[in-house]
Design a protein around this nucleic acid. Structure first.
Lengths: 132, 132
DNA sequence: TGTTAATTGTTATAATATAACATTGTGTAA
DNA sequence: TTACACAATGTTATATTATAACAATTAACA
């Protein structure tokens, strides 16, 4: 079988919703919002999420257990992700900085470990919240 | 009240156990292992974990929902953490690399966000597992 | 010693995620 | 076109991770 090029029904439903909301969203919130499309069980959502993460269409924000659509063209396989997270309003943005990604891709662990993936999460206050 | 200098009873029990096992461990696993010390409920563990993370004695490995004792003297407040995680054997090591931490501390987001914390997780194969 | 905040103990429950198994769909090659 | 392999689905149940709410106790210190 060739590599999958089209998404399955459930995968497409979940991706459409995540892209529509355009901010990190939790699995059960997705579930509530796609039930009208026929998705009834958590597992249906989690399976779609797993696949979408695997192919790089979405990312998981680990510290928040939330999922967000990928906006970078250069992280196709979810192997190099970086986010900024506002600890006040919880706004999350994907960081697209080629110097940063280059630096991290080339990072060499002292223990000689071979990396194929990383995830970086920065925390702080976004512009709006730092004014308040 | 002055800043806390000594740990409370439950905090100390939990920390002692995490330091003893010397690898990432999950909250409920901690619970099972400290019940003989009188800790009976998940909340008692989670409250201790929260405090220990807050004061930098331990870190949370977000992608694994696990906790590990801090081995760096220079990340006292858990504000700058980096780990390498073997996807095969799940071995986790804290990365202590002053160049890396300097680079990340000074990283400037294009959106002008002010960071006070970051967490970085690298994934790959450790030496042992890459031989297999 | 009285006050305040931190910590504890306890029960219940919320939120996140996976196991297991039967069934259906889809691409590919015989 | 049929048979095979694998991906995806549907479904029920359950495992795992984490917090809410409230009462009681302990510790620091003005």
């Amino acid at each position: 079988m060739l590599k999958q090029e089209t998404l399955s029904k459930n995968q497409q439903i979940v991706l459409d919703y995540i892209e529509k909301v355009n901010e990190p969203i939790k699995a059960y919130s997705i579930l509530h919002n796609v039930q009208k499309k026929g998705i009834k069980a958590p597992l249906q959502v989690y399976r779609a999420l797993d696949k979408l993460v695997e192919i790089g269409k979405i990312h998981k924000i680990e510290s928040r257990n939330a999922f967000v659509a990928c906006k970078n063209s250069n992280c196709q396989i979810s192997k190099a992700t970086a986010f900024s997270i506002c600890e006040s309003c919880e706004e999350v943005s994907e960081i697209s900085d080629s110097k940063l990604s280059k630096y991290l891709k080339n990072f060499q662990d002292k223990a000689g470990m071979k990396f194929n993936k990383y995830n970086l999460e920065f925390f702080g206050l976004c512009k709006k919240c730092s004014i308040k």
